[in-house]
Simulated assay, not measured.
Amino acid sequence: MPQKKEDYITNKVLAVFTVCLGGVLILMGLKKLIDFGTTFLIGMMVVRILMGVAALGVLVGIFLAVREKKNGVDNTYRILTGRNIIIVFAAAFVILALVHHYGFPIFKVFYGLLPVLAVYYLIYHSYQPEFCVMSVDCGVAIAMLLIVRRAQISANVKYLAWVAAALCIALAIVQIAAVLQIKKAGSKLKLGTHKWDFRFSSNAYGMMLATPVIMAALVTLGAAMGLTIALYAIFVAAAYLFVTAVYYTVKLM
């Protein structure tokens, strides 16, 4: 059973990477069509066709999920399940709908977001839970700092820099409260009927308490000090993520 579970996780991570890479390639093809006036209408028609395919995929996923539940199918080590099909095609439909409505800005967003999601999925399954939490903290901080820089360039939306800083501070407070509660409960968390038993390392709580504070401070500093400092703050957050990634990778060996 342990070997079967290991293979399942490996194949699932590979499947997520494949789907995300396929999504990026499809978006690149659509952008090439929409980029030129001569093929713009064809590109938009392809987007609508793909939206229809995605909607059909969601319906197929719902049908399979209902049938699996009715027949009592065990999906413990299965990748091609109704639930997973629904998630993939629903995400595809949302992305295509955004492309159809907003056009070019959406391509840049998902060129970066899809690979990042695949990497985070790998981290979630392969690394210690505390590093997964810290990597999310760093990723959110870098995203907020990019928003800060964009807001500071435009005179009309400068307030967004402080909105991003406030959001980062709020998330840090929530995380600190959750970590303290989990520590108090002996690495256990209960929400309603759901229970989680975490296996954190000896220094995990200190790292999970310090990281959100550091990231919130970097975002606030970027919002207060301007474009150049915000750029340096991005480098610091990325360096922090890299150093912790190396540390936890070594611990896995």
Rank of each mutant, 00 (worst) to 15 (best):
P2Q: 12
Q3M: 05
Q3I: 12
Y8W: 14
I9D: 02
N11P: 00
V13Q: 02
V13A: 01
V13H: 07
A15Y: 14
T18R: 11
V19C: 08
C20R: 13
G22R: 11
L25W: 11
M28T: 12
L30P: 00
K32S: 11
L33I: 06
I34Q: 09
G37N: 15
G37W: 15
F40G: 01
M44V: 10
M45A: 07
V47W: 10
V47Y: 13
R48V: 04
R48G: 01
I49N: 05
L50A: 05
L50V: 10
G52M: 03
A55D: 14
L59E: 04
G61W: 06
I62R: 01
V66P: 03
V66M: 14
N71K: 15
D74F: 03
D74Y: 09
T76Y: 11
T81S: 11
N84P: 08
I87C: 02
V88N: 01
F89H: 15
A90F: 15
A90W: 15
L96I: 03
A97N: 14
L98N: 01
H100L: 05
H101F: 07
G103Y: 08
P105A: 05
I106F: 07
V109M: 15
F110L: 12
F110H: 09
G112Q: 14
G112D: 09
P115E: 00
V119L: 14
Y120D: 00
Y120F: 08
Y120T: 04
L122R: 02
I123C: 07
I123L: 13
Y124G: 01
Y127S: 11
Y127C: 05
Q128M: 04
V133I: 14
M134V: 11
M134N: 09
S135M: 14
V136T: 09
V136S: 04
I142Q: 01
M144Y: 03
M144S: 09
V148D: 07
R149C: 02
R150H: 09
Q152M: 07
A155S: 10
A164D: 02
A164E: 04
A164R: 04
L167Q: 02
A170M: 12
A172C: 15
A177I: 12
A178E: 03
I182C: 10
K184R: 14
G192T: 09
F198E: 01
S202Q: 09
G206Q: 13
G206A: 03
M207A: 11
M208S: 04
M208G: 00
L209D: 04
L209Y: 11
T211L: 11
A217R: 07
G222R: 12
A223Y: 15
G226M: 08
I229N: 00
I229C: 02
I229Q: 01
A233T: 13
V236N: 01
Y240I: 08
A245C: 08
Y247P: 03
Y248F: 15
T249S: 14
V250F: 15
L252Y: 13
L252T: 12
